Computed example of a mutant assay.
Amino acid sequence: MPNKLPEVWLRGSLTSMPALLQPVAHALLQAREELNELMEGFPEELLWQRPAGLASPGFHLQHLTGVLNRLFTYARAESLNHDQLAYLATEDKPPVGDYSIKSLAKNFNEEVDKALTQLSTTDEQTLTQVRGVGRAQVPSTVTGLYTHAAEHTMRHLGQLLVTVKILQAGFNADGVS
């Protein structure tokens, strides 16, 4: 049996990360590790399958990337641009052109890297500053956005895990094996 590392949060502090943002960074790093392990060897032909009406693995992979991008944009007090809105509109559809599980995982990994960079340069004094979310500019805070990014990422990772396991067990769209 391979020697498995403890979960990221049990491996110690991240030296480049502000103390108050360590939990967010740990969660994102944990999600990245688990996602890459989960998707290793997953069959491409199952990527857009929706067993029992669940969201497809492809949706979760795209959504995980898109949500991080959007929430971290709001944390910077920026509005979404045209490309981000277009991405949001197509998260539940297979990308146009050449795509694969490997490329979707790579996109998520790169978004986690961007998020970690942003976290590492965040002044802790800004964490309680108000930020608007979405077109309606619903008020949140920088820490609220970062915390939601972490919990939302872990929630969708859990949903992805269940969907992948169901598909690997051979269940069809009606939930029948």
Rank of each mutant, 00 (worst) to 15 (best):
P2L: 13
K4R: 12
L5G: 02
L5T: 12
P6E: 10
E7K: 12
V8F: 10
V8S: 08
L10M: 14
S13T: 14
L14V: 09
T15Q: 13
S16M: 09
M17A: 06
M17P: 03
Q22D: 08
Q22N: 08
Q22C: 07
P23K: 07
P23S: 10
V24I: 15
V24C: 08
V24L: 04
A25R: 05
A27F: 00
A27M: 12
L28G: 00
A31L: 01
R32Y: 02
E33R: 11
E34L: 09
E34G: 01
N36K: 07
E37A: 11
G41Q: 05
P43A: 05
L46I: 00
L46R: 10
L47Y: 00
L47M: 09
Q49L: 06
Q49Y: 02
R50M: 10
G53W: 05
A55S: 13
P57T: 04
G58H: 03
H60W: 13
H60A: 03
L61M: 10
L64E: 02
T65M: 06
L68G: 13
N69M: 13
R70Y: 05
L71Q: 12
Y74I: 06
R76I: 02
E78H: 12
S79I: 01
L80M: 14
L80N: 08
D83T: 11
L85R: 15
L85P: 03
Y87N: 11
A89S: 15
E91L: 10
D92I: 04
K93N: 09
P94T: 09
V96M: 08
G97K: 06
D98V: 14
D98M: 09
Y99E: 09
S103Q: 14
L104N: 08
K106M: 13
N107F: 08
E110L: 15
E110D: 15
E110T: 15
V112F: 07
L116S: 09
L116P: 07
T122W: 07
T122V: 13
E124K: 03
E124H: 05
L127W: 11
L127M: 10
Q129Y: 05
V130G: 01
G132D: 10
V133H: 07
R135G: 11
A136P: 00
Q137Y: 01
V138F: 14
S140F: 05
S140C: 06
T141F: 06
G144M: 07
Y146V: 02
Y146W: 11
T147E: 00
T147D: 01
H148T: 04
H148G: 00
H148W: 05
A149G: 06
A149L: 04
A149I: 02
A149T: 03
A150Q: 04
E151C: 00
M154G: 00
R155S: 01
H156A: 01
L157C: 01
Q159F: 06
L161P: 00
L161A: 12
L161Y: 13
V162Y: 13
T163D: 08
T163P: 05
V164A: 11
I166L: 15
G170Q: 07
G170E: 09
A173M: 03
A173R: 11
G175A: 07
S177A: 15
